[in-house]
Amino acid sequence: MIADLSADEEKILNDVKIRLAKYGKERGQLIPILQMIQDKLAYLPHITMEMVAQHLDIPPSEVFGVATFYNQFRFNPPGRNPVKVCLGTACHVRGGDIILENFERKLEIKEGETTSDKEFSIERVACVGCCALAPVTLIGETVHGNMAPSKVEGLVMRVQIEKEMKEREKQKNESGQ
C-alpha cells in the first residue's frame, strides 16, 4: 500500500500537484479534485490522498473515507486494456454474468484484479446504456455488443495480436533506421 510509483507516474504526479494548486480550498472541491487525479493517473495512489488532505486542510482519513465510498475511484492501477463487463439489467437477463466468468477464466484473474503483465484488468459496470445490444462488454473504450462466451477468446487474442503487431512494427522501424 506504500506509494510505489513508476517513473511515468512520478512525472504525472508533478503535473497533478500544479493542477491541484489551482483548486479552491473549500470542502466542496474534494470530489472534483479526486476526479481530476484519477483522470490523470487512472487511480488514486495513497500519496495523492495525503496531498489532497493537505491542500484542503482536512485529515487524510476524511479523504480516504470519501474516496472509498464512491464506485468511480480505484486504488490500484488498471490494466492497459481494461475489460468492463456490463451487468445492467438487460445484460443480466441475457447472460452477462457468463461473459464475466469467461473473461475471468480466460485471463485467470477475478473481477477487480489486473493481470500480472498489467495488460488486462476486469471490472463489472452497471449499465453502459446500450441495452438493445445486450450483453455488452467494453475493452478500453470500444463497445462490443451482442457478446457470446465464444467471442471472449477471440477478443483477448485480438488485443494481444494487435500489440504484437505494433511491437514488430516498432522493431522494424528501429532496425530500418
Binding site: E26, R27, G28, Q29, L30, I31, P32, L34, Q35, G65, V66, F69, Y70, N71, Q72, F73, A126
Partner: peptide, 25 residues
C-alpha cells in the same frame, strides 16, 4: 455541473447534497 462519482444512493436527495458538499453520500 457536478459530476457524481457513482453511488446509486446519491439519487436520494439528502445523499446527493452530501456528496456535492464533499462528504460520503
Amino acid at each position: 455541473i457536478f459530476e457524481g462519482s457513482g453511488a446509486f444512493v446519491c439519487g436520494e436527495e439528502t445523499a446527493l447534497i452530501r456528496s456535492i458538499e464533499g462528504y460520503r453520500g
